[in-house]
């Protein structure tokens, strides 16, 4: 198009049809671009706020699931002033974190001290949160660590959902005869390497170790465990066996301590036996003590069994004390955070 034609149009049109068409298209393109920029800028702002909340939620879930906390035994540290919660379970033998497995004791403690340990530390103050462990096995109840009411007008909500393994009972003490071979051979790592306080006593009090491989000699297998008054207040303890009921009719158990040795033998039952009263009686007025769990076996290799003292949260139904729950159960760890 020539300039002269553009300027000196004799039909009194400022633009030719082509020029007008071009300007319309350019205007539309510019308009769309401006709108796109506006949308992009809004989304950027929205994204940064969203990203921040998502990052907080993801990091909080990571901290809780992947680390054991600081100190590692923070769940037993009632008076520590500086601690970071973490739920990862520690392998007691190697001292390393067991991947994707969370400790039931730490979950219980976090539930009791959630506001103090989580709010303002790993989740910002003022944010509402919900932390629930949903077992894949539907017969188990979810563990609700915290469930703040999520208002309908929340501006942002972020959810982190992780698959973890979680114990639904914690094992206080294990007497494993069925799986660990001959308990009469104290091994470096075996749980049967312990000498019980009844050793070298005379009469009924005397405990001799069984000889399972060498002709089925009967005897006692014993293990110590620690109990505190806090444990008794927050946990129900049960004695259970595997298999249940037992084939060994002579099987018996005793719980005592070195300061109060007894010969009060109890029969195992086909159902879990709650022992809080017994533990409380043995603990007496002390705040904490080392107790001993003694288990008698006929030594018959065909009738071997494992015995456990397990803990479940106070008030749990006896139906939830089941042998299969001794193994960590696959669960969904769901953390929701909203502003």
């Amino acid at each position: 198009m020539r300039r002269k034609e553009f300027v000196d149009d004799e039909i009194a049109l400022a633009f030719s049809t082509d020029a007008m068409l071009a300007i319309v298209i350019i205007t539309v393109i510019l308009g769309i671009s401006a709108d796109a920029m506006d949308i992009a800028s809004y989304r950027l702002q929205d994204y940064s706020s969203r990203f921040s909340l998502e990052r907080i939620t993801t990091d909080a879930a990571d901290i809780l699931i992947k680390t054991p906390g600081s100190p590692e035994d923070w769940d037993q540290c009632y008076f520590c002033s500086y601690m970071t919660p973490g739920l990862a379970k520690i392998n007691p033998t190697t001292g390393t974190t067991i991947p994707n497995t969370i400790s039931f004791e730490k979950v219980t403690m976090l539930k009791n001290r959630y506001s103090e340990l989580v709010c303002g530390r790993i989740i910002p103050s003022g944010a509402n949160s919900s932390m629930i462990i949903y077992p894949i096995n539907s017969t188990l109840n979810p563990i609700i660590i915290r469930d703040d009411v999520m208002k309908s007008d929340v501006s942002e909500i972020a959810v982190s959902n992780r698959t973890v393994l979680c114990d639904f009972m914690f094992t206080t003490v294990v007497i494993a005869m069925n799986t660990h071979g001959n308990p009469s051979n104290p091994t470096e790592n075996g749980s049967q390497g312990e000498v019980c306080p009844h050793i070298n006593f005379t009469g009924n009090l005397k405990h001799q170790q069984p000889d399972i491989n060498g002709g089925g000699k009967p005897g006692w297998v014993c293990h110590h465990f620690k109990i505190t008054q806090e444990n008794l207040n927050s946990t129900d303890f049960y004695v259970i066996t595997d298999p249940s009921p037992l084939k060994d009719s002579s099987a018996r158990w005793i719980i005592d301590r070195t300061e109060n040795i007894t010969d009060d033998k109890q029969r195992f039952s086909s159902t879990p036996v709650i022992v809080n009263d017994k533990l409380s009686q043995v603990l007496g007025a002390d705040n904490q003590a080392i107790l001993w769990f003694h288990v008698f076996t006929s030594g018959n290799p065909q009738k071997l069994y494992d015995a456990y003292i397990v803990g479940v949260p106070k008030g749990s139904l006896i139906e939830q004390v089941r042998l299969e729950y001794l193994n960590p159960q696959p669960c969904f760890f769901v953390l929701k955070v909203c502003f």
Binding site: E188, E194, V195, I199, T258, I261, I290
Partner: peptide
């Protein structure tokens, strides 16, 4: 032979001779 941490903590609980004996035995 092996290093094993004594569970009888606080250590004054060894004042019960049976606890002391058990600590030594283990």
């Amino acid at each position: 032979l092996f290093i094993k941490k004594c569970p009888y903590d606080p250590y004054i609980s060894h004042g019960t001779l049976l606890t002391l004996k058990n600590c030594i035995d283990n």
